[in-house]
Simulated scan of single mutants.
Amino acid sequence: MATEESWHPVEDGKKLYTKTWRTAGPAKARLVFIHGFSDHCNTYNTFFPTLASKGIEVYTFDQRGWGRSVQKPSEKGNTGPTTRVLEDITSFIKTVIPSPIPLFLMGHSMGGGEVLCYAALGPADIRKHIRGFLLEAPFVDFSPASKPSPIVVFAGRLVGKLLPNVQKVNKLDVKLVSRDAAVQKQMEEDTLCHDTGTLEGLSGLLDRTGDLASGKIQIGDAAGEGGVTRIWIGHGNKDGITNFHAAKKFFDELSAKDKEFKTYEGHFHRLHDEPGTEKQEFMDDVANWILTRSVEPVQVEASKPKL
């Protein structure tokens, strides 16, 4: 297995830090991964190397406002609105398509919410390349343990319309992130996990979450490659950051025929970073879901009769 680091220039001139985990032999699938809030692509420890060891190449990047894509303090959390977030994802996916092997899109937490939005709202000419969508503890709603008060949300949105680039620190409780003390320490000490968002970026996150939780954003049964929606969601039922029950409700209401929801009993927010061997079950589940759908025949959209 080898890793590669690079910089991806987006259309507006912004450069995003990227990293790729390549397989030792011929790859069986490609995975584009979108990280979460106050996170970056180098915090995923054994997850990406494990996928690569199983034949899955991982392509990921530090989102605008996060990780090494931040070049100066004023850029911290400056993600832009949801349109900009989705455009950055599109720009990055374009670097790996057309893919000679099946391509999958996955997101964790905030990134999971973004991937759900992308499955519903992303450009059809890009989504047709995506074999399946995977979500790890997607941000469909806040867990009660982390939910801000309605007053705080209202005030933040109001001020955000006037001063979109004002930064606000929203400290994640590392004790809710994982039960592994070493992971808690890692997240606490990592200066790239800066817990800072702009009011515009935070408002966009809240809007996406609200639209997902309310059902305003819906994913049909033709979101991906071959006119088929394939979707997998994994969520710990003791997650104190994102809402397990909201994610399950969203899943239950999906019209997709190929869908799977996996409950991880007693697990917290970073399923790939739970203690000891418990994370291995999650990583194996992700790899097996991808590899199973990498060998299945692709269903092709029925041709429309010519008028």
Rank of each mutant, 00 (worst) to 15 (best):
T18E: 07
H194A: 05
V295R: 11
W7M: 10
F104E: 04
W21F: 11
K128R: 15
K76N: 05
C117F: 09
H35L: 00
G77F: 06
I126Y: 02
A223S: 14
A213R: 04
F33G: 08
V166G: 07
D285N: 13
L105W: 00
V70D: 01
V159C: 06
N78T: 04
E278S: 15
D180T: 08
G227P: 06
T43K: 11
M110E: 10
M106R: 09
G111Y: 04
T43A: 00
G160F: 00
T18Y: 01
K171A: 11
T60N: 05
E136A: 14
H129D: 14
E189L: 14
L172I: 15
F139V: 09
K248D: 11
P102H: 05
A247V: 05
L158R: 12
I130E: 04
K15Q: 15
L51R: 00
K14V: 15
A302C: 06
R131H: 06
L212V: 04
R270D: 13
T20Y: 09
E188Y: 05
R64K: 07
L172V: 13
I93L: 13
A52D: 06
G240L: 01
E114I: 12
S74Y: 09
I231Q: 01
T209H: 03
H108L: 08
G36H: 08
E188N: 12
A302N: 13
K147F: 01
R131I: 08
R270P: 02
S91F: 03
H269K: 07
Q63S: 11
T277E: 15
M187A: 11
P275N: 07
D190Q: 03
P26G: 15
D221Y: 01
G122S: 03
K306H: 02
G226M: 06
E87N: 13
F268C: 06
L31R: 00
R22P: 00
W66R: 07
G276T: 10
A24I: 12
S109E: 04
Q218H: 13
R179Y: 08
A256G: 05
D252V: 03
F48A: 07
D207L: 10
D221G: 07
L205F: 02
P144C: 08
G55R: 03
S143P: 08
L158W: 12
